[in-house]
Design a protein around this nucleic acid. Sequence first.
DNA 1: TTCTTCATGTAATTAGTTACATGATTGA
DNA 2: TCAATCATGTAACTAATTACATGAAGAA
Lengths: 226, 226
Amino acid sequence: MSRGRNEELTTTSYAILGLLALRPWTTYELAKQMERTLNRMWPRARSKLYEEPKKLQAHGLATASRQHVGRRPRTVYAITAKGRRALTKWLQTPGQGPSLEFEQLIQLFFADQGTKQDAARTIRAAAEWARAQSADFADGARPYLTGQGPFPERMATNVIGARFTVDFYDLVHRWSQWAAEVVERWPDDPSAAEPDWALVADIVRRADAVADASHGDSGDVTRSGR
Amino acid sequence: MSRGRNEELTTTSYAILGLLALRPWTTYELAKQMERTLNRMWPRARSKLYEEPKKLQAHGLATASRQHVGRRPRTVYAITAKGRRALTKWLQTPGQGPSLEFEQLIQLFFADQGTKQDAARTIRAAAEWARAQSADFADGARPYLTGQGPFPERMATNVIGARFTVDFYDLVHRWSQWAAEVVERWPDDPSAAEPDWALVADIVRRADAVADASHGDSGDVTRSGR
DNA sequence: TTCTTCATGTAATTAGTTACATGATTGA
DNA sequence: TCAATCATGTAACTAATTACATGAAGAA
């Protein structure tokens, strides 16, 4: 009943395991690669990424080989056959849908307790966030356009996540532009702003549209505009 | 140097404080209201919502009045003047941009380690998630269309978050339909799928478009289509 | 040779979750 | 009067974060 074996694997564990399926990495490389790629959809602190591989090893899913750089030790991890089996099995299990944390939006939810300027500033910050993230993402992806960038053979798989990422930044950006216009029209005291009920109706209608979309009916989405 | 005063307030604290600014609530009501509304953008376990008000009280931002229902005690919390000041001050501080956790997308990132069916199933699950969330959201919002639903006077503020929410569900839904089509065209072995470099170029272009959008230039967004 | 950045970790702390427990209320 | 659901919490646990520490390599 060793300690390590009892600790359950988390999504973070499988994310690391997935990277190990591509090639062996040192812990530092692993953490760096994680930050470059998966971080956008699975953000974790660096120190966590140093711990997880140990757990994989304890489960027999990875091997650790201790090496040295001068007097400093370092560890290279590699996936085992058992690790590959565990990974493919995980790919068959139902994963969690998206989970969003958005502090700025909580602030906007209580915008009527503050000033119009507060709201406007928060919206600008969200727009700037989208801009900065997009720029960063584009910088990371651009090398692939000239045949550079790591793991080009994995691009067929990667585009699925990449498109979601850009869709999301685009969404935040468009939404913030819209929100800025709305707030612009508010009176100085946000709590005195009049609700636009037509807008509410439109929002409900759009939610219904998604809710009523028949399962796996992919053609419809291109037929009907926004 | 009492314990409570030293604990820093978190976004969760301010979310609760914001609700208290609307009216006094029992802890149960508070937790319920949180689940109905803020949960989509700030998901927290129920038990957490029972703890937070105590912290607010320790900071002097809320008062707690112990009441009784039969033999059971219950607590009603109300905001103080100091609490209102703390809230408006928080609204002036820069908040965090969106943070996304999306396990299914991590699975898709490693789709080349599994089967085409695994990927298709994961995408269907994401679509179903969007459908279910949209339905739930629409159910919560619909009463407002007939003049019902709590805090109608706050709707001018609320639509900002509501629209973001629907935008997001819509995005997940559309993306999943697109992804389903893409995976459909894959060969049986996902790792043998050929990258579509035109698609990659398009994604980078879209990221650049967001990154290059000039600050606060809201008109442009309506002029240029997707 | 010194400064900075890259590389490699551990330790202390905490925010948050899961599990547990039980009284009150309502409807069949 | 029984079962189900609503209401009200506490306790135990853990995943993750922040802070700390330091060697190696490259630049100035």
